[in-house]
Amino acid sequence: MNHIKLVVAGALALLGVLVIGGYLADPAPQATDQESAAAGGTLRIGVDGTKPAYYKVDGVTKGFDYEMALGVAEGMGATPEFKVMDFNELFTALEAGEIDMIGAQVTETAERKQDFAFTAPYFVTYLSFLTPEDSTIKDRDDINGRNIAVVEGTIHERYLAEQYENVNVIKAKDEDGAVKAIQTGKADAFFYDAPYTTPIIDRAPIPLKSAIVYAADDAPISFVMKKGDPRKKQIDGILEQMILDGDWLKLKKVYFKEYPLSEVFKDKGA
């Protein structure tokens, strides 16, 4: 699943609260969906039903993005309504007005920002190099000069070229193809999004491990909304407060305990 294109992003938006008010002439116009959500109506959140963003265990819904979205809805006084769909369908649904917000570990990119609005970040992209258990790859310096598998069509190839020297990129059709490249000796490691490596390791025909996991501080993850949605400012403020209050850090420890804390959130007091 391609969730990343690493771009330099700005700092968290200034704390703001959306104020809806003014005098209404009789007869009062019908409230829009946006006004309804801000005033205690329904906030429709599109998710892709993938662990660790949104998933169920014994009928109980869990997930980092799920719980962050719950916090946002609570801060707005709105009722959250989650709609599960394939990741590639989320942006179309947002454009069509079927959902109000995407919460699926979406990384802010220059291309996406042309068409959509991104809230203040509530996470950053974590990257991983999957290797055989007996690999000599231990840290990022060991990547240079290696054969690294990526899923063809994702942006991992570009990032490798930008961040690492003398890397030979091995293109694979999908995740299993990348693992096969390691199995056959064509690749030394598989470069992928860290939160989504567990199922790959579980089904791999050879023993694999996440040899390297690190935060890409220049790749923020945010909720995605329509451009011009006035609720964005309110949501930015709620997210900022969740970080300052420590609510964000509690969730990070539940779902990403093993990940190092990003400098982005250290700067915000987390």
Rank of each mutant, 00 (worst) to 15 (best):
P52S: 05
A194L: 02
D33S: 09
R231G: 07
T136L: 10
P195Y: 08
E67W: 13
Y214N: 04
P205Q: 09
V179S: 11
E98Y: 08
E175M: 07
M225L: 15
Y255K: 01
G75H: 06
F223W: 06
A38H: 09
I99P: 01
F265C: 04
I4R: 12
T154H: 02
W248Y: 06
R140W: 03
M225R: 02
I221M: 12
G177Q: 11
K138W: 00
D65W: 04
A219V: 05
I137Q: 03
G75D: 11
Y164C: 06
L160Q: 11
I243L: 03
V264F: 04
A31D: 14
R231V: 08
K113Q: 14
L160A: 07
K257R: 10
N88C: 00
L239G: 07
T32L: 05
Y159A: 02
T107A: 15
K209N: 09
R112I: 04
Q183N: 12
L24V: 03
F64M: 08
A117R: 02
A120H: 01
Y23K: 12
G46R: 01
G228C: 08
V19Y: 13
R112M: 07
V124H: 04
A28H: 10
D236E: 10
F191S: 05
A69S: 15
L90H: 06
I170A: 08
L251A: 02
